[in-house]
Amino acid sequence: MEILKNKILKPFVNISIASFLLVSCNFGNSQIEIVTSDEMEYLILADSVQLIDVRSFEDFQNKHIKGAQSIVFDSDFEENIQLLDKTKPVAVYCRTGRRSKECSQILKDQGFTKIYELKGGLEKWEYQDLLIESNTDVEN
Rank of each mutant, 00 (worst) to 15 (best):
M1K: 08
L4M: 09
L4Y: 13
K5L: 15
K5Q: 13
I8C: 08
P11W: 09
P11S: 04
P11C: 08
F12V: 15
I15T: 09
I15P: 03
I15V: 12
I15M: 10
S16C: 10
S16V: 03
I17L: 11
I17A: 06
A18P: 04
S19Q: 06
F20Y: 15
L21H: 03
L21G: 10
L21V: 06
L22G: 13
L22C: 14
V23A: 12
S24Q: 11
S24I: 00
S24W: 12
S24T: 03
N26P: 02
F27V: 05
Q31W: 03
I32R: 10
E33D: 08
E33V: 06
E33A: 08
V35E: 00
S37Y: 04
E39C: 07
E39N: 06
E39V: 04
E39I: 03
M40Q: 02
M40Y: 02
E41M: 07
E41L: 11
L43P: 01
L45H: 06
D47M: 00
D47G: 01
D47L: 00
S48P: 01
S48K: 05
S48R: 02
L51K: 07
I52D: 01
D53F: 01
V54Y: 03
V54N: 07
S56G: 08
S56V: 00
S56F: 10
F57S: 15
F57P: 13
F57K: 07
E58Q: 12
D59S: 10
D59K: 11
D59G: 00
F60G: 05
N62F: 05
N62K: 15
K63L: 15
I65L: 05
I65P: 01
K66Q: 12
K66M: 11
K66H: 08
G67I: 01
G67P: 03
A68D: 04
Q69R: 11
S70F: 02
I71A: 06
V72A: 11
F73D: 09
F73G: 09
F77E: 03
E78W: 06
N80S: 09
N80T: 02
I81F: 06
Q82S: 14
L84H: 04
L84S: 06
D85A: 02
K86E: 08
K86N: 13
T87V: 00
K88A: 09
V92Y: 00
V92M: 04
R95D: 09
T96I: 14
T96G: 12
T96N: 07
R98D: 13
R98F: 04
R99I: 01
S100F: 08
K101D: 10
K101A: 15
K101I: 00
E102M: 11
S104D: 05
Q105N: 13
Q105W: 09
L107C: 06
D109W: 02
G111K: 01
F112Y: 14
F112M: 04
T113E: 13
K114Q: 15
I115P: 03
Y116G: 00
E117K: 12
L118G: 00
L118R: 00
K119L: 12
K119G: 10
G120L: 08
G120A: 06
G121S: 03
L122F: 04
K124R: 14
K124M: 08
W125F: 08
Q128I: 02
Q128D: 14
D129H: 12
D129P: 06
L130S: 06
L131E: 14
I132D: 05
S134W: 05
S134M: 11
N135E: 12
T136Y: 14
T136M: 05
D137M: 15
V138N: 14
E139N: 12
E139P: 15
